[in-house]
Design a protein around this nucleic acid. Structure first.
Length: 281
DNA sequence: AACGCCGCCTGATCGC
DNA sequence: TGCGATCAGGCGGCGT
């Protein structure tokens, strides 16, 4: 599923492709993904608008456009299964295409199998986000204080986007493993050393994934023959990305460090993977 | 205020 | 073979 690194890669890829393009037509096939923006307003604001920039914040994509009314932000979130890419107009629309923007030579496709994602003019969600884990200005004391106030398991806290923006289920397990922190440990029980290791591990995991993911367009689709950018498909299509994961999805297989078996259990209705031997307090 | 839990969605997979 | 049950999970909203 798309987390910070996947969105970062997508943003870098899309930015030059959409820059300067004008929205000439709008085809909304699932108005639910626009919420809370109405279909009428979405069309009214975006028709004729021109893409001027694209940024990432957490797992969100922030498209900047110049519209009649002035500058507007189009907020994208890929949810679990969302994808955004440019496709030839002659390409058949995918089954779950939710929004199609006519950019002239190509179509901007936002598709989402489960429709958990969003493409909306309401960008208020980003105001609630915590700091960017890769920013130099990351506030460690604030992070430590937030942990001190919570009895919740650290794994669950890492998924809280108001604490750190962009960490999802996969990288939460990976970061805890690398930091040697047990996922069930209550947040307030982490020592200063563990917090330091955890923050470092989060950065490492995310940076590594971005570097790894940056090779994705070369491995499949990308700017190749069909001009599509496929993304977040089956793990085997994701090149060496999946191989880099050390615990996620590897229950019953040996820990790369100690050789013990990786365990899986459920936390807040989500899978957590860890090494019982390497992750102890 | 913090926290647990549900609903939203579809497709893959499993058991009978 | 067919079909219902289960699982996958980001996140908003709601109840405690």
């Amino acid at each position: 599923m798309p987390e910070l690194p996947e969105v970062e890669i997508l943003v870098r890829h899309l930015r030059p492709l959409i820059h300067g393009k004008t929205v000439r037509g709008i085809n909304v096939r699932r108005s639910k993904v626009l919420a809370p923006t109405s279909l009428r307003k979405f069309r009214q604001v975006l028709l004729g608008a021109k893409f001027t920039g694209l940024e990432r914040r957490g797992k969100y994509l922030l498209f900047q456009l110049r519209a009649q009314a002035g500058s507007v932000t189009l907020l994208g979130h890929l949810g679990m299964t969302g994808r955004i890419y440019l496709a030839r107009k002659s390409s058949p629309l995918p089954r779950h295409a939710a929004v199609v923007l006519d950019l002239g030579r190509k179509n901007f496709i936002y598709e989402d199998t489960r429709y958990f994602g969003r493409l909306t003019l309401d960008s208020s969600a980003v105001d609630k986000l915590g700091p960017e884990p890769l920013a130099g200005s990351f506030d460690r004391p604030a992070f430590a204080q937030a942990l001190k106030r919570s009895r919740q398991a650290i794994k669950i806290k890492l998924l809280d986007q108001t604490l750190i923006a962009g960490v999802g289920n996969i990288y939460a397990s990976e970061a805890l493993y690398r930091a040697g922190v047990p996922p069930r440990l209550p947040a307030k029980k982490l020592t200063g050393a563990q917090i330091t290791r955890l923050l470092q591990a989060i950065r490492e995991v995310l940076i590594e994934a971005v570097e790894c993911g940056s090779t994705l367009p070369l491995d499949f689709g990308g700017e190749k023959s069909d001009g599509l950018f496929y993304f977040g498909r089956a793990p085997e299509a994701a090149g060496n990305y999946a191989e880099r994961l050390r615990v996620y999805g590897r229950a019953g297989r040996p820990c790369p460090v100690c050789g013990g078996l990786i365990k899986r259990f459920r936390q807040a209705a989500r899978s957590t993977f860890y090494c019982p031997r390497c992750q102890r307090s």
